[in-house]
Design a protein around this nucleic acid. Structure first.
Lengths: 168, 168
DNA sequence: AATAACTTTCAATTTATTTTGAAAGTTTAA
DNA sequence: TTAAACTTTCAAAATAAATTGAAAGTTATT
């Protein structure tokens, strides 16, 4: 396979995968492009390469910076900004977990805590089922949260090592 | 908070969370409704409760069955089908991981393996960066896959126990 | 302080996804 | 075997999300 074909396949696949995880296709594609670029790229280059508009490029670059996955850089002698991605995929994964935890897990736990306070009596079947589900859900989310928080403090191999030992 | 308010809040929140993980709002809502229902529900009841069309209800129920999260049941003396969800959230989580692994992780690993074969020489900077990213990505996805495969074989508390020990 | 280089914004548009609902299909019961 | 009960399908419509691009905003240069 030629380089350009492989590159396009990669960017396209990353975009598709992104969509199925709630990340916009363009954002995933900008990320993919920066992941495989040895040098940092300007907004101009990203637009041209992915054939997207200036506004789209700008917005997705900003979002990636917000997610802590992309950084900007000043190149001496150049006025415009250049962007590069964190290349260490384990760091990338940890960063994504960290952000989603903050954006999604925390609010959900707050909500579940609130929902447990619903009015009702033990004898009401619907009330009981509701409390049971919410309580069980909170317990699992809580434990997953704990596990993830610990996992992202480990290095790439340690987590696997731990789980491996458990099954040896 | 009154039961009905809590119920609606829960269903609505679950729908929103679903959207941000690539699951359609309705599908997540049908799931949420079944999770908190003490009894199994007919398509009719689901449609009415969530105010969605027959086609939409049918389709999302089928998808949930495909995902292994919902089951159908025949109620003696009734012609229509009734549906109920797996209530054990740890089992639900394991099932979702299992399905996403099959649907998404496996194809990605196949693709990455393929992309490593791209033509090029060691001296080409772009080629090298591409191979590095793909290789690193494959290594992380592989390890995550391994970790997840092991994790879903554990019970709800064991995983937390393992990670806890590691940090004690 | 004027201009050029560059970045950001956002209303309008396009594209993608979800939902509807009526018709077709299927199953069960009389 | 007919009809009623129920389920599935799918083209059209509605909704939601992403994208465009031109104008406004900002910053650096002369």
């Amino acid at each position: 396979m030629k380089y350009n074909e492989a590159k396009d396949t990669f960017i396209q696949a990353w975009g598709t995968l992104g969509s199925s995880w709630g990340i916009s296709r363009s954002m995933a594609q900008v990320h993919a492009l920066l992941l495989i670029s040895p040098d940092s790229l300007s907004a101009e280059e990203i637009m041209e390469d992915l054939k997207i508009s200036r506004g789209n490029a700008n917005m997705n670059i900003r979002d990636l910076i917000d997610w802590g996955l992309v950084f900007k850089e000043q190149v001496p002698g150049e006025r415009k900004e250049f962007f590069y991605a964190e290349k260490d995929i384990w760091k990338v994964a940890k960063q994504i977990i960290k952000e989603r935890r903050k954006r999604e897990i925390e609010p959900i736990l707050t909500l579940l805590e609130e929902l447990k306070k619903v009015d009702g009596t033990k004898t009401d079947k619907k009330h009981k089922a509701f409390i049971d589900t919410v309580t069980n859900l909170e317990s699992v989310v809580d434990k997953a949260d704990f596990a993830l928080t610990r996992a992202i403090k480990l290095d790439e191999n340690a987590l696997v090592g731990v789980l491996f030992k458990l099954f040896k």
